[in-house]
């Protein structure tokens, strides 16, 4: 046994926790999507002629997909988490259930963690009928994260090809969308662009919900 122990280990002889009751006791922890806000990333406003390291600032215009929210320019964060744009609506057939399959093309890991946070009690994506698929064959939407990498190029294409039609492609994070500060984007075209480095869980869910409601 170790030298330091804050708790004793159960022998199994005593009454062990009933996780079901324990879970119920903690009550519902799910939140509204606007309940928690963070400043970076959030929609930036204002003007800046700063020499942006990712070329997200050009001719006075801010390109959300390229921004890594590095706080170096004079744009101000608003706290507004709507850092996304919808190119193409999600087909009606997915109104009642949408299965996401994530592919890590070349991430730093933070986008992956934010993606898994969708399934946390605070965000509970299942209340929006958004679930995770374990294989691209059962997926409706491909969630692409990270920059283009040589090793993942074919894997990404194979995952896309394996999905049944109709299919949706979601770009999650600056790396996937534009390459961010690290490289080049993982795919040419996305139906849903979720900006941020990494995007917040609320932004991811709001983007998908908006794309599903769009006519």
């Amino acid at each position: 046994m170790g030298e330091l122990r804050h708790l004793d280990i159960g022998t199994g002889g005593e009454v062990s926790v009933n996780w079901f009751i324990n879970g119920i006791r903690k009550r519902i922890q799910t939140e509204k999507l606007d309940q928690y806000r963070v400043m970076y990333p959030s929609v930036l406003e204002g003007m800046s002629d700063y020499n942006c390291p990712t070329e997200a600032l050009r001719d006075g215009k801010w390109d959300m997909d390229k921004c890594i929210f590095c706080r170096q320019c004079d744009l101000d964060p608003t706290g507004n988490q709507d850092t996304y744009s919808v190119e193409k609506a999600i087909p009606n057939i997915f109104k009642k259930s949408l299965y996401l399959y994530p592919v890590d093309s070349g991430t730093c890991g933070a986008c992956n963690v934010e993606f898994t946070t969708l399934f946390s009690p605070q965000y509970d994506s299942s209340r929006f009928k958004i679930f995770m698929a374990n294989t691209p064959r059962h997926a409706d939407a491909l969630v692409v994260m990270g920059v283009h990498t040589e090793g993942m190029e074919r894997v990404l294409q194979e995952a896309y090809d394996a999905m049944p039609e109709p299919k949706v492609v979601i770009g999650l994070g600056a790396c996937a969308l534009s390459g961010g500060i690290i490289g080049r984007g993982a795919m040419e075209k996305y139906d849903i662009h979720i900006a941020g480095c990494p995007p917040t869980p609320a932004a991811i869910l709001k983007a998908i919900i908006e794309a599903r409601d769009k006519k």
Binding site: F69, C70, P77, T117, P121, P198, T200
Partner: peptide, 29 residues
Amino acid sequence: AVPEKQLLLLREEVARIISGAFAHRYYFS
């Protein structure tokens, strides 16, 4: 599943403590 979700909840709580202090959930910038 129950402790897994409780720990996910707690991981998120810590992410929020980090963002409360540093304005970013992963200490970028």
